[in-house]
Design a protein around this nucleic acid. Structure first.
Length: 491
RNA sequence: GGCGCUAUCGUCUAGGGGUUAGGACGUGAGAUUCUCAAUCUCAAAACCCGGGUUCGAUUCCCGGUAGCGCUACCA
């Protein structure tokens, strides 16, 4: 199997191999995206493999969270595997490696060696006792049922140098003497990550492994495993890590929910904006472009554009989202046709208890599109369109800058008269209200503010005429009447 | 500790032996506008330190420092 001529594959096969021990992490999401872009850019195959060999820590909730996150991103994959279903293959290959003499049984009880620091001084490189155990004794103890871990017999002596060329970091070398005899099989017979991962990568004929830089050093072990498997090692490309403002790797414990992609989804990020943002972390199209569609990203993506330094996701306690992510989201929201944006807004409005009919929301959407950065902002930006009754507001807001309550009253009174007869469309309202302002000897500002506050219940809102047209005559008139009442309280 | 990787505005980045070191976000100021937003203009803001190499280094080399990663019978 591993020696099958994988080199004849013309198109790349890449994989994303998350382990279901938590939710989908933004760093993992980026790794997935980069793999996907690489596959699509090169017309290759995207493989999704669940690396679930750690039975202790795997959870179904995590599996659901990961798939949910990936589905939300909207990037599909071509093949799907589950590592736990491939156990037989892993053991068989471990056996083959042992049979070829590339591994030995280590009968040292688990956790006995790592307790004291001094053991990390030199003995860790190899297990003098176990490495040299005769085959006969090894077989005998194994047959007697003594538990053992299977360890790779890393070549010692000479100046054996392990080398590979990383697609991002360039030529990498390491002395084999600096690689310890790492485990392939645990004493319970389960494969370790290194073994399972390499066996599967070889078996699935993965041509390019694109993963986080935290695996850069592990790659030497993997090279050794591919070698023992008799398989050609894939190409490797490591990605700089995503780190928090404190410089450390993003983690749930330290940094909270900001590291989960569901947090972005639930706040109302558009997946295309989120993808766009993540791509700009550690990769650059090198042409000063920031706003990129998925197609543009696919066309532009190359490993050469990947940076080598870790990238900071710039969030704070007050502000859980990187300002650039928010800005990009606003850009993508504005780029979306109203008919597409509107239904996306719907659940966010309903979440806050607003009853928004699709038709009305469609009419409202263009009025708030430029005023929201996240989809969830839609609720606060558009609430007054859907509230049957305006929330109480300070009547003082009805009074324009350089005016008093009586001016506000005059404006509202006059507006009522005008609005009773004019048609409720943008142009008619525009003409009628401007004319009304002129009659009162007022500029637009002082004229429109009392009306805006009366109709919207606040000072900052979308353009007045469009807003009133959507609200309709009845509602506007009623709200102005109520505003007059509120004004009474000011005497 | 050992090994490895990295180092340009606050953040994401472009660039590269001679440049006013470019862009974006954010920030500040202004313009426009019925408010807000959007848009436009302008501004402040960076080559980690020390040695080399060179006529000339932010760029190339070495060292230092700092950060990160690996160093598990976790992945």
């Amino acid at each position: 199997m591993p020696e099958s001529n994988s080199s004849e594959a013309k198109t790349p096969r890449v994989r994303f191999a998350p382990s279901p021990t938590g939710y989908l992490h933004v760093g993992s999401a980026r790794t997935f995206i980069f793999n996907w872009l690489y596959a699509r850019h090169n017309h290759g195959t995207m493989v999704l493999r669940l690396d679930d060999t750690d039975v202790e820590r795997n959870t179904d909730a995590s599996v659901r969270s990961i798939f949910g996150g990936l589905r939300w991103l909207g990037l599909n994959w071509d093949e799907e595997y589950k590592q736990s279903e491939r156990l037989a293959l892993h053991r068989q290959q471990a056996e083959a490696i042992f049979a070829k003499g590339h591994a030995y049984r280590d009968f040292t009880p688990a956790h006995s060696a790592d307790s004291d620091q001094s053991s990390a001084q030199g003995a860790w490189l190899s297990n003098p006792g176990m490495r040299e155990l005769s085959r006969e004794e090894s077989d005998r103890r194994a047959a007697a049922g003594e538990p053992f871990a299977l360890r790779y017999r890393v070549p010692r002596g000479e100046d054996r140098i392990l080398r590979f060329v990383d697609g991002v970091y360039g030529a990498q070398t390491k002395l084999a003497d600096e690689v310890e005899d790492f485990a392939l099989l645990r004493s319970d017979g389960m494969p370790t990550y290194h073994l399972a991962s390499c066996v599967d990568d070889a078996d699935l004929r993965i041509s390019h492994i694109i993963r986080g830089q935290d695996h850069l050093t592990n790659t030497f072990k993997h090279l050794l495993i591919f070698d023992a498997l008799g398989a050609e090692a894939p190409q490797f490309a490591h990605l700089p890590l995503l780190v928090a403002p404190d410089g450390t790797k993003l983690s749930k414990r330290r940094h909270g929910p900001v590291v989960s992609v569901t947090t972005y989804r639930d706040a109302g990020f558009l997946p295309q904006a989120f993808v766009n943002f993540l791509c700009l972390l550690g990769w650059s199209p090198k042409n000063d472009r920031e706003f990129l569609t998925l197609d543009e990203l696919t066309a532009a993506f190359t490993l050469e554009g990947v940076n080598r330094a870790n990238a900071v996701v710039n969030f704070t306690e007050d502000d859980p989202f990187d300002a650039k992510a928010v800005w990009l989201n606003a850009e993508h929201i504005r780029a979306l046709p109203v008919e597409q944006l509107s239904p996306l807004l719907q659940p966010f409005l309903e979440q806050t208890g607003l009853q928004a009919s699709p038709d009305k929301l469609l009419a409202v959407t263009p009025l708030i599109r430029e005023r929201i950065k996240l989809l969830r902002d839609g609720a606060s930006a558009a609430d007054f369109f859907f509230l049957p009754q305006l929330a109480p507001y300070d009547p003082a807001e009805l009074i324009p800058q350089k005016g008093d309550a009586s001016l506000a009253r005059r404006v509202l009174k006059h507006a009522q008269e005008v609005l009773t007869t004019t048609a409720f469309d943008h142009d008619s309202l525009d003409q009628a209200l401007r004319a009304a302002a002129a009659q009162l000897g007022l500029k637009a500002g002082p004229m429109f503010q009392p009306i805006r506050v009366a109709v919207c219940g606040r000072k900052n809102a979308p353009p007045l005429f469009e807003t009133m047209a959507v609200l309709g005559r009845e509602v506007c008139l009623e709200r102005i009447r109520q505003a007059e009442e509120r004004l009474q309280s000011l005497g």
